[in-house]
């Protein structure tokens, strides 16, 4: 419990014209913790992810990342070079649409290898061995290593994106609706895979989702957002089983039972 947060944000404000995308939002994430940001479209959850990952600058507020050396990096002051370095070493991104996170014209092995090469791997055999190992871990037959991901199914593309992201062992992974456009059966497999990998690697994850089932399965902690504000947060099962805020009660009671 003495360990410090890996990500710390406070006083975040962001407006798009008259719409408040973020209104006095604060958030802390600790190493090894999966935090889900839950909300409907327009709740500000994606804006929050973008601000936390340095993609969009807030109108006010601060975001700090504590790097592997223990140095506190002010995300919106550090500069693009520092952020890019983080993005290809200590951070990972899993996008809803695998096309945003993959190079569809580059082989599966090349996709996984790119991050290794970006951090200086220069041994072709070593890169291929690592790529094969990661394809196995995400349940893609290593025999397909030299195939192009544009010929893969949506679920496979998403698993490839996860392999590509995790191959350099990031410490903090941002995920934006990672199971978004997938069939239900494919979703279940992917969720289980993410759950297992996250636990194995002890990753900190910030997950944006509108899907309560996804949040319950993956997240240790929930942040419920509405109209740019955090309306409720806490332990996942506490928030979902005993929701306090009117909006959370509405969300939870609106889930269709199977």
């Amino acid at each position: 419990m003495s360990d410090a947060p890996i990500l710390e944000a406070s006083g975040l404000h962001l407006r798009f014209g008259s719409v408040a995308a973020l209104d006095e939002v604060a958030l802390r994430v600790w190493p090894g913790e999966v935090v889900a940001i839950l909300g409907e479209s327009g709740s500000g959850k994606t804006s929050l992810l973008r601000v936390l990952s340095g993609t969009v600058a807030p109108d006010a507020g601060e975001v700090f990342y504590r790097d592997a050396a223990g140095v506190l990096v002010p995300v919106h002051v550090a500069g693009e070079a520092a952020l890019r370095r983080l993005a290809r070493t200590e951070w990972g991104f899993v996008h809803q649409n695998p096309r945003d996170g993959l190079r569809l014209g580059v082989s599966a092995g090349g996709n996984v290898g790119e991050r290794l090469m970006a951090v200086g791997a220069r041994h072709y055999g070593g890169i291929r061995a690592a790529a094969a190992e990661w394809l196995r871990r995400v349940e893609i037959d290593p025999a397909r290593m030299d195939d192009l991901p544009r010929d893969f199914s949506g679920g496979m593309q998403q698993r490839l994106q996860i392999a590509r992201t995790l191959v350099t062992r990031p410490r903090l992974v941002f995920m934006d609706e990672p199971t978004g456009g997938l069939d239900v059966s494919v979703q279940a497999r992917l969720l289980d895979l993410i759950r297992a990998l996250v636990a194995d690697l002890g990753l900190a994850v910030l997950l944006v989702t509108h899907d309560i089932a996804v949040a319950r399965l993956l997240a240790h902690r929930l942040v419920v957002m509405r109209r740019g504000r955090v309306v409720e947060h806490g332990l996942t099962d506490r928030v979902l089983d005993d929701p306090q805020h009117e909006y959370t009660q509405l969300l939870v009671s609106s889930v269709l039972a199977a």
């Binding site: 419990m1 600790w30 913790e33 279940a188 497999r189 969720l191 289980d192 759950r195 297992a196 399965l217 240790h220 902690r221 947060h233 806490g234 332990l235 506490r238």
Partner: peptide
């Protein structure tokens, strides 16, 4: 929430009436 997780991990066990099944495990 983090402290509650730690207490649950080390000190406090719970057997509910229903198993919350995790798919595929």
């Amino acid at each position: 929430a983090r402290l509650v997780r730690e207490v649950r991990r080390e000190t406090l066990g719970h057997v509910s009436q229903f198993l919350r099944v995790i798919p595929r495990v």
